[in-house]
Each structure stands twice: as C-alpha cells, then as structure tokens.
Design a protein around this nucleic acid. Structure first.
Lengths: 183, 183
DNA sequence: TTCGAATGAGACACTGGCGTCTCATTCGGT
DNA sequence: ACCGAATGAGACGCCAGTGTCTCATTCGAA
C-alpha cells in the first residue's frame, strides 16, 4: 500500500526527461498512484523536481564511488562507471536536461562536483596516453551524458536492446564507428 | 522592420530545445520581437511548433541532399553531412527532442523518411566494411542526433568552441576516444 | 476480525500563461 | 515629406493546471 518513493521518482524522471511539460496528473498516473497521493509525498511540482535532483545526484555519486574512477586504466574505469550508472540512467538523463535550464554559469553545486569527477577521468586518460588529446575532457564528458540519455531513450522505445545499453555506449565512446583495418 | 521569419524560428528552436516550458513571451523576447508580433506570424504555440517542425525537416532534408550520402565512402559522406547540417544544428536538436513526445510507434512522417536516409548511410558503411557491424544502424543514427544536440548545447554555453563543432562530433563518432596505438 | 493509516476520487478556488484585441508609434518605400 | 504597413505595449477574458480540501475505500499489522 505504502508508496515506493524511489520507484515514483524513477518513473517521474523517465517521463519528465522526455516530456518536461507533463502534468502532475500524468506523473502520478505514470507512477500508478493518484494525484492526491503524489502531492502528499511531494509538496508540489518544484518539490518533486528538487527531490528528483537530489535523488539523481545521490545515485550518480554512488555510481561514481562504486566505479573507483581513480584505479586502473581510464578505459576500464569508464566501463565500470557505465555498469554502475546503468540502473540510474533515467535519473541521469533527467539531471542533464534539467541542468540545461540554469542560466549562464550558474549550476547545481552537487552536479558540478560530480561533473568534475567525470571530467577528471577523461583528463587522466589523456595524460596516461589512453585517450586522444584532440577531444577535450569537457566535450567527452558532455558526449557521455548525451549518449547515456540517448541510449536510455532508445531502449525505452525499443530501438536498442536493453541488454546492449553498456556495450553500445562504451564501444561507441571508446572505439567509434569506424572499423579498424586490422583485428 | 519586417520580421525575419527564419531567424525567429532559429531562435525559438534554440530556446525551446533546452527549455520546453518557455513562455510565448520568452520566445518573443529571445527573438527580439513583441509577443503580439509573434502571434501575428504564428497563430499560437501549436502553430509555432508545427512551423518549427516543418522548417527543421526542410533544412535537414536540404542538408541530406547536399551531402550526397550515396556517393563515395560512407565516412566521407558522414563528414559532408555534418558540414551541411551544422547551420541547422539548433533546429535538428529541437526536432529530436520534439520527436520524443510521440507516443508508441507514432512518428512524424517527414522525420521518419529522413531518419531512414541517415540509417541507410550507416548500413551502407557497414556493408562496405567501413563501419563496425556490432553497433546497429539504429543506434548509430540516434547517437548522431544525440551528439549533435549535445554539441550544439555545449557550444551555446561555451563549453566547446563553435569552430570545433564538426570535428568533435565526427572524430568521436568515427574514431572514438581511445588513442590508437599507432599513428 | 478489528482498527488506524494510507490511498483514490473528486470538488473547489486560484493563478500563470494563452489568444485576441486596441491604439499609438515607427519603419520603409515612393 | 508622405502614407500605408508593420510593430510594440498593454488590456482583457479565458482556461488548463495547480494546490488544497473532504470523504469513502482499501490496505495491512496486531
């Protein structure tokens, strides 16, 4: 009977990340609860968005910790990161689209901290000779977010198999589409 | 004095693709015109969105034609496509986010046609041995859209240099982030 | 079974944004 | 300089969506 808060947040993230104009009623129905119940758990739309941000940042941070980005070769760390991030892909997609709303250099503090950690991974990869230096860490970071969001949506609409989530992103991000002459 | 319709549409696309909840007044101000004038050119919000879709599809189709996707090696065709698409990146980003609103398998007809052309390019590249076959054409197509949208936004906020737009996308999409052992 | 807590459905007033209108002003061709 | 067309600013009613409330129903632990 009691509402599963986490499940509601995940459903809301999945819906709001593709349809930002979704009604509170639509969010509630998508989560399988009534609008009144949704309001009992989240004071209003703003509160829901804030809870979504907090939850997403918390889950993303946990994924970053679990992936141990500082250990081993950067490409391997990136693979671990994607494995850890997959369950929170919907939340991450919401965070990315939500962060685009901030004006100018203003930015969610928590997000900025996590962003720096991902960027540092790509920088480390460059310094250790594993990643190309002509693609900036900032771009690789943004590209990672973009690909995660894109793939999460592609899986939702059945355009990509759910089991291929990690593989498609990692392989494209690391190796690109071009076929190697050898191997 | 007369309003530049194309410029208004481009500005609106750039704004609405990151902030779907933007007010008609915000759209008008962003375009440097009054709300009344905006309503004189586009009957309402729905009409504006429809005009945006038509304009975006038209520009994207023109880019596809100009890129001659059927000629030469697929990787080169992809480079030409990105060069042609760059001026319409904002419109394309709007189209992609807008198309995510359609429920189920329903889809904008015009968009579906263009989508098929891009997908065919990746398939041709696979058949001719230029692209990897373990990344599906559908995923490569979605990834291309995602990277274009991501990069367009990254340029807007100053995270990527405007001049690097084509290079960053093409290089990441074709070659990936990993540094080749040789070369 | 019993009882308190949680939920769903609906009603209600309120508000932000939309669509339409008017009017004064400005632009640009002649 | 002139005049028609286009624009900007503002006012107005309207409505979908919000936030709050009530009440009947259902869940789940004791």
């Amino acid at each position: 009977m009691t509402v599963d808060r986490d499940q509601v947040l995940r459903t809301a993230a999945a819906l709001l990340s593709r349809k930002a104009t979704a009604t509170m009623d639509e969010v509630a129905r998508a989560a399988g609860i009534g609008r009144a119940t949704l309001h009992r758990h989240f004071a209003g739309r703003d509160a829901l968005v804030r809870a979504l941000e907090d939850f997403g940042i918390q889950r993303f941070e946990a994924a970053l910790d679990a992936a141990r980005l500082d250990e081993g070769p950067a490409p391997d760390a990136l693979r671990r990161l994607l494995a850890e991030v997959e369950p929170a892909a919907g939340l991450l997609a919401f965070l990315v689209t939500e962060n685009q709303l901030f004006e100018g250099d203003q930015m969610n503090e928590g997000w900025a901290r996590l962003d720096a950690r991902v960027s540092a991974l790509f920088r480390r990869g460059q310094e250790q000779g594993d990643f190309r230096i002509d693609l900036t860490p900032a771009w690789l970071t943004e590209a990672l977010y973009g690909l995660i969001g894109t793939c999460a949506w592609a899986v939702q609409v059945g355009r990509v198999a759910a089991n291929d989530f990690q593989y498609m992103i990692v392989e494209l991000l690391l190796g690109g589409a071009r076929r190697s002459v050898e191997k």
